[in-house]
Every structure is written in structure tokens, then in C-alpha cells.
Design a protein around this nucleic acid. Structure first.
Length: 572
RNA sequence: UCGGGGAUCGUUCAACUGGCAGGACAUCGGGUUUUGGUCCCGACAAUGGAGGUUCGAGCCCUCCUCCCCGAACCA
């Protein structure tokens, strides 16, 4: 189960300094001109045939914030006009994801609830001679539609009488015609330069079971015949969608003009969808990754789906902030994934509690550490700050003793230039513990360190020296006697290329086959066993990690900390 | 080929609709620091091209170039 409770909007988001964009400008103009006699209404209209991803988040944030900023409402509407591909489980998942993102739709609607109304309106168009039943094959219809620069031609059934059409259409509804045998088409203009207006299909016959209407219907409305009408029925004012629907706008308007609607009709505005570097956001590509087993499922943390980002530890607020920051335009663009990550870091830096975890352990022994009366090493409790960015998070007690685990990366037998961490003869701080000086190390035959030896300065409890001397590095540690064993999943980008598939046309070719690394012998600070499922903590000096919702002591790397040392090394 | 959109620092979003091209991320440099984190300071860097109008053009006009979308009984 996923925790969906902690997603109220930040106050800072509500009073977001008004950034203007062309959509908001349109809305304010409409408000000034009193175009609508109803409040601003928007809707997020997914088709329940897949899972929501970061691209949808942009649309969701836009739809909801436009409404919120103007005292209006935003609804969730499932555009479920295709029984072949849609399913209730997608509805459930989408509702959950929208909620997790932090939004409560004013209502949850379904295009399928309008099937009856849509059907009546279709008969109306037929009666007015604006729609006809075409008994040609899909291929024939496509052929007659013409092409870019070539006008279409009118088919043989175009001039049937309204009565004939009505009878035929009712037969279609009643299941008297096989699938694919005929369609209802709007009678517009086969020569129109906009192909969308070349007698578009309004209804097709499908004998599939619809997940909501069951077997009630044998005919299903097309997207265009359902969408604008759904908007109108619901009272939508501003119908926002992505750029590829630009050409559909004329049809959207045409349909609404033919119908006896009250009040000003909604109108459609298109904007550029969100693309990100090093990932894909298309239902088809995502489905392929899942179906072909390139990832473990729709919530594989390497995916850009909302459930994956959630599992990975991305805060909903960071996604929201990111989406409103990037704004909205009509330019095809691809944002750096780093920008999203920087929003995640900014949020998590403020909110995530700090803990110590050693991912690749190396034993460190403090040779002059005292023993108790039984000859056992003393266990000393050290007090560590939970979050330097937020005093309210308080402190915790962490055991410290003679034998500790430290990160393999934090010791070098022969330190490279600029290496500030432990090496023979150097002194470092064990965070919140003591200053220790390395006296040497036991190595295997190949020279790999097995155990590092240090002496500690008893005067430096807490980590500062009374004489004021400085050390160049602070490293994290976990007491060997109290460490819990855990595992960690380190994620890299799923794709090696900035624009997956750019060169070959197939993103799969750019898949990084090693995009996840599981570390199984990690040593975790005791308190890490208390972390709630999906909670994100910072492993000091490493990154942000989300507790797996089911696996014990397993963490997913949300995002790493910026790493100056790694950058230095890459420079050479 | 026709129709519809688009083009501003490396990436993106701005520029009060004709008045010194700004921010964020990234990069580079510096400072602070018990996280090589955070924070702070600084630097780099752009109006696709050619004409025209204007005192003045990213913005207006003309031509050109390049990119995206459109010929499902998908959405």
C-alpha cells in the first residue's frame, strides 16, 4: 500500500509569483471580456489504457492550477471511448496517481456516461443531413480521404437520405451489422485542406466488452465526437491539450456548432507536451519496456511513470514545483532531467532526515579505544543532528565503538592528489564522533585494504578539537557491533543517450543494460530499521534513499548528492 | 507535395507587446561549512539567415532555411 496522505500543497506553491504564459493570458482575457457566464473550468482527460507519467504531470499541474488560480474547478474525465484497450485497473491507478500528485478533482467523470446523449446528438446530425452511414471498408475510406496536397473524393454512400441513414444507424446500434462493416461519418468537406474535416468517423462498431458500459453498446464514438461534447456537458471553459491535437480543433468547434448547446462553448488550446532527456514518455515505448522485460514493471524506479517516481522517492511537491517552473509554451522542447533532479534535491534537502549508511563497507579499528570492566570495547552513544536544515527534526543517539564500518571510497593506501579522506598518517573526523588518525592498514596479497587501523583523540568527542586544529574531511561510519545489514538499489539513467533512439530510431538500442546496481552487504545505522515505507532519508554524503514499501531494510536511491569529488576525478 | 505550429545562452522559460536581452538548471572559479551536501559570491554564454520599416527591432513587414504535427473505424 502506498501512503497517499502527505501531499498537501505547500503554502509557497499557492502564492507562486504569477508567471504569465500564453494560456494564462487567454484565460485572463476571457475573464475580462466575460466570455463565459460560468467560472473557469478545466479537466484532465486521460484515456484509461495506461499509466500516468511525468508528461501527464505537466498537464495535470497546468489544468488544476489554471482552475485554482481563477477560483474555478478542475475535473478528472476518463476518455473511455475505446472498449478494446481500456480497463478499470487503469482508472484506479490514474485516480490514485492524481491524488498522490496532490490534487482532488472536483468530480470524476467518464465519457462513457455521455454515450446516450452523444447518440441522440448523432441522430440529430443525421436528421439535419450532416452525418451519414458509410458502408465502405476502412481502406477504401482512407484512400478516398486523399493526402497532403491531394483533395479527397466523395464516397458512394455520401448522399443517402437522412431516413436511410437513421435506419442504418439504428441497426448499427442494435448490433445488426458486423464490426467494420460500416461507420457513421460527419458530412463536412472531402476537399477540405484540413484532413480532420474530410468527413471524419463519428461512430464505429465494436462488439468488445466495455469496462463500464458492458455490452450495452455495439457502437462507440470516436475521440473527436466525444471530447468537445464531454467538455460542453461538464461546463468546461478551457480545454487544454497537447500540440498534436491542433488540427482537431477545427473539428472540435464544428461539432459543437452543430449542437443545441446553451452558453458559450468551451474552446481548445494546445501546448507542448513535456519531454525529458535520457528517458521516454510515450505509452507505446513505456509499454514496450515493461512488456519486453527491460524493466521490472510499471513502477520500476527507472521509469518516468508517476508510480515509479513515487517508489523511487520523488516528492510529489517537487514534481509539482518542477512542472509549474518549466511553464507552458508551444515550442517542442526537451528539458534536462537534471532540472527535475535539482527540484527533487531542493525539496529533499529541506525535508529528509539524515542518517548514516555504509554502502561498500571497510572495517576500521580504533586501536586505542578503551575497554570496559569485562574487557569489552566501550559502547558510547553519540548525539547526531537529524536535519541541519530543520532544527525541529531534533537529534538521535548513535552508538560508537572500537570497530566501525566506513566506506571503501573513504580510504586510500596511496591517496591521489586532492584526496582529503583517510590514508596512512592523515587525520579525519568521524562525523559526530571523534578525530582519528590512520596508523596503517591490513591488506590482502593484491594490496586491497581489509582493515584500517586508527588511533582516536579522546579530547575530540563530538568531532572538534580543543586546540582548534582542523581536518580536511569528515566521513560517515556505522558501529560494527550495532549495524544492521541492508541492501540498496542504485539507479542510473535507463538510457545512455540524451535523446533515446535519436540515431537508430529505436530507443531500445540506447538502453543502458546496467542501469541498476544492487548492493547487498550494506551496513546501516540502527535507526534505519524504523523508517516508514516510502519515506525518504538522506544517507549522509551519498544521496537520498527511499525505503522500499515491502522489503525490509531495502532502499532505493532517489537521487545522489552533488559530488564535487567525483567531478574532480572526471575532469582529469 | 498541402495544411497547422515552432525557432532567444549548452538546456529551458522570460522580456511590461517597439526601448540597456533576464532567471533557473548545467558548466567554470571563489567563499562558508562537522556532509567534497546545503548556503553565499562571481564568471561564461543567445535572438536561425538575408533584406525592409523605424530615432530605435527578439518583437512589425518580405523572402529564405531548419524542426515538429497531420492522410486509425487510436486518443
Amino acid at each position: 500500500m502506498t501512503d497517499l496522505t502527505q501531499n498537501s500543497l505547500n503554502p509557497s506553491e499557492a502564492e507562486d509569483p504569477k508567471r504569465s504564459d500564453f494560456v494564462r493570458e487567454l484565460v485572463s482575457e476571457d475573464l475580462e471580456n466575460r466570455r463565459f457566464n460560468r467560472s473557469v473550468q478545466t479537466r484532465f482527460p486521460p484515456e484509461p489504457n495506461g499509466y500516468l507519467h511525468i508528461g501527464h504531470a505537466k498537464a495535470i499541474v497546468l489544468d488544476f492550477s489554471i482552475a485554482q488560480e481563477n477560483g474555478g474547478i478542475c475535473m478528472l474525465r476518463f476518455d473511455d471511448t475505446n472498449p478494446t484497450t481500456e480497463d478499470q485497473r487503469y482508472v484506479d491507478a490514474i485516480v490514485e496517481d492524481v491524488q498522490w500528485l496532490g490534487y482532488n478533482p472536483a468530480s470524476i467523470n467518464y465519457s462513457s456516461d455521455y454515450f446516450e446523449q452523444l447518440y441522440e446528438w448523432a441522430e440529430l446530425l443525421i436528421l439535419e443531413g450532416l452525418a451519414y452511414v458509410d458502408a465502405q471498408s476502412a481502406e477504401e475510406i482512407a484512400e478516398q480521404r486523399g493526402g497532403f496536397g491531394q483533395p479527397g473524393i466523395e464516397g458512394p454512400y455520401r448522399d443517402r437520405t437522412p431516413d436511410e441513414n437513421l435506419a442504418l444507424f439504428r441497426e448499427m446500434r442494435d448490433g445488426l451489422h458486423p464490426e467494420g462493416s460500416c461507420v457513421l461519418r460527419a458530412k463536412i468537406d472531402m476537399q477540405h485542406e484540413n484532413m480532420q474535416l474530410r468527413d471524419p468517423v463519428m461512430y464505429r462498431i465494436r462488439y468488445d466488452h466495455h469496462y463500464r458500459t458492458g455490452d450495452t453498446w455495439k457502437i462507440y464514438p470516436s475521440y473527436d465526437w466525444a471530447h468537445g461534447q464531454g467538455d460542453a456537458i461538464e461546463g468546461v471553459t478551457h480545454s487544454l491539450c497537447s500540440l498534436e491535437f491542433s488540427d482537431n480543433r477545427a473539428l472540435y468547434d464544428w461539432y459543437l456548432q452543430q449542437l443545441p448547446l446553451e452558453g458559450e462553448a468551451p474552446y481548445q488550446t494546445e501546448f507542448a507536451r513535456l519531454e525529458l532527456t535520457y528517458t521516454v514518455t510515450s505509452k507505446r515505448r513505456l509499454k514496450q519496456l515493461v512488456d519486453d522485460g527491460h524493466v521490472s514493471g510499471w513502477d520500476d524506479p527507472r521509469l518516468p511513470t508517476l508510480r515509479a517516481l513515487r517508489r523511487r522517492g520523488y516528492p510529489a511537491s517537487a514534481i509539482r514545483e518542477f512542472c509549474s517552473f518549466i511553464g507552458v509554451s508551444r515550442t517542442n522542447s526537451r528539458h534536462d532531467i537534471e532540472l527535475l533532479e535539482s527540484f527533487v534535491r531542493t525539496e529533499l534537502n529541506q525535508t529528509a532526515q539524515r542518517r548514516m549508511a555504509v554502502l561498500r563497507p571497510l572495517k576500521l579499528v580504533i586501536t586505542n579505544w578503551p575497554e570496559d570492566e569485562h574487557g569489552e570495547p566501550v559502547i558510547e552513544m553519540r548525539t547526531l543532528v537529524n536535519n541541519p536544515e530543520d532544527d525541529a527534526d531534533g537529534t538521535r543517539e548513535v552508538p560508537f565503538s572500537r570497530e566501525l564500518w566506513i566506506e571503501q571510497d573513504d580510504f586510500r593506501m596511496e591517496p591521489p592528489p586532492k584526496y582529503f579522506r583517510l590514508s596512512p598518517g592523515t587525520e579525519v573526523r568521524l562525523r559526530g564522533g571523534y578525530l582519528v588518525t590512520c596508523t596503517g592498514a591490513i591488506c590482502d596479497e593484491e594490496g586491497n585494504p581489509l582493515e584500517v587501523h586508527c588511533t582516536y583523540d579522546p579530547q575530540t568527542a563530538g568531532g572538534s578539537a580543543p586546540d582548534g586544529r582542523k581536518v580536511k574531511s569528515t566521513i560517515h561510519w556505522v558501529a560494527a557491533s550495532h549495524a544492521i545489514d541492508g541492501s540498496v538499489a542504485l539507479y542510473e539513467r535507463l538510457f545512455k543517450e540524451r535523446i533515446p533512439g535519436e540515431t537508430t530510431g529505436d530507443p531500445i538500442d540506447d538502453l543502458d543494460r546496467d542501469s541498476v546496481e544492487i548492493l547487498r552487504d550494506c551496513k546501516l545505522e540502527q535507526s534505519l530499521s524504523d523508517v516508514e515505507p516510502n519515506e525518504v532519508v538522506q544517507f549522509e554524503r551519498i544521496g537520498y534513499f527511499a525505503a522500499d514499501p515491502v522489503l525490509e531494510d531495502h532502499f532505493h536511491r532517489t537521487v545522489g548528492l552533488r559530488d564535487e569529488w567525483a567531478r574532480l576525478q572526471n575532469q582529469r
